[in-house]
Amino acid sequence: MKNSKPIPYGRQHITQEDIEAVTSVLQSDILTQGPYIEEFEKKFANYIGSTYAVAVANGTAALHLCALALGVNSSTKVITTSITFAASANCIHYCGGSIDFVDIDEQLYLLDFDKVEKQIQSKPAGFYNGIVAVDFAGQAIDLEKLRKLANTHKLWIIEDACHAPGGYFTDSRNIKQNCGNGTYAELAIFSFHPVKHIATGEGGMITTNDKSLYDKLILLRTHGITRKPELLIENHGGWYYEMQELGYNYRITDFQAALGISQLKRATEGLQKRKSIARKYNAAFAQIESIVTPSFEDGHAYHLYVIQVPDRLDLYNYLRSKNIFAQVHYIPVHLMPYYKQLGWKKGDLPLAEAYYEHCLSLPMYPTLSEEELNYVIECIIQYYSK
């Protein structure tokens, strides 16, 4: 078995159509705040099934704006998972709030609802304000169940769906609920980083069904400034604008939006390829006792294909020697030095920590060829045959 070309865990897919879409904007008169942004927002909202969408600079900016729109401040306390990218927790700290991490479900690697409820009940009524729920790896969290829990304790929900455009869960009425569609969460966010399903270089999107939150996000995205005549307190003429809140420059560019529109056309096709890769991995590793594979679910968006193995470091190094660049997702956020300074320590979340000790993300992206996929599988089988 030989492979001279590196195989990463994730890779963007840029076509000639994508290049032409970007080039057309670069050759136009407007590069930043042009018509493609609104078009991208409308088409993405339609794809997800939400009423509104707000395009922003990146997924982290999306999370920050969600926290601001929900009024997070120094008295706000929020629950989230530790198996996520740091931004899922950091966004609350940006606004002066604080985070309590809750352990994961052993099978799904998502927030364990029983543990969430236990954590809430361990504090006085009204102690917590919200939950940041993460669709980790593309596995859709059951927001209907979480919504019932949140309603009981008067909590809002931000859904971090960065890994899960096109993912869904089926609710108690047997209705498919797309990740980010706004049925059960106040706000949801997506990322368009190159390794995600839809790539715009950097970029993100917030989705919601709440008009008041949508209006607030639009204002906060652009320095808190508005030019809309109907919203102005005063009006000195056609040039006039007002800064009505302390906002941020979290805008996306028009050429990024054009790329996003072009990429969105292939979103369904790319998702089906990811599912095909997951099926093939699962079948190939079914008889290897040392590998725990994710159970296959049609609603899983498979941003990541994560296995659990007893000898993660050895396998990681072996694959790198074969030019296969598997990755680890994620180092538990509560064990990062910043959060350890706030009092978190090893042993606080035993299931999240055990997951981290054994997890490995294998190559998963739509342009992974059959030859490359077979090579990855053969290398892993060869490793365990020893």
Rank of each mutant, 00 (worst) to 15 (best):
D311R: 05
F285K: 07
L264M: 03
T293R: 14
I277N: 03
Y241R: 14
E230R: 08
L232D: 09
Y338H: 10
G270N: 12
K228N: 12
L219F: 06
Q263A: 07
G247C: 12
G260L: 13
E230N: 03
R279V: 00
M205I: 15
L313Q: 14
S290P: 01
I225F: 13
L271N: 04
K322H: 08
V292K: 14
G238C: 00
H303R: 11
R320E: 04
E289R: 11
P332E: 02
N282F: 00
E234Y: 15
H300C: 02
N317R: 15
E245G: 13
I331Q: 11
H197G: 02
V333H: 01
T208L: 06
A199H: 13
Y214S: 01
L259Q: 05
S295A: 03
A199F: 13
V309G: 01
E289V: 08
F325L: 12
Q327C: 13
Y305E: 01
L217K: 01
A326G: 01
D215Q: 13
P194M: 08
K275G: 10
A284D: 06
Q256F: 10
I288S: 04
G299I: 12
K280T: 07
K228A: 10
H197Q: 12
A326Y: 13
T253Q: 13
T268L: 09
L304G: 07
Y305Q: 02
Y330Q: 13
H236P: 00
F296N: 06
Y250S: 14
T200V: 05
G247L: 05
G203D: 04
Q256D: 12
I225Q: 12
Y250C: 09
I206R: 07
G203H: 03
R320T: 01
R221I: 10
G238K: 07
R274T: 02
V328R: 07
T268S: 07
S212M: 06
Y302K: 09
A283M: 07
L271Y: 05
N209D: 02
T268G: 03
M243G: 14
L315S: 07
G224F: 03
D210N: 05
Y305H: 03
F296Q: 04
H223M: 13
N282M: 03
R251F: 11
E242Q: 15
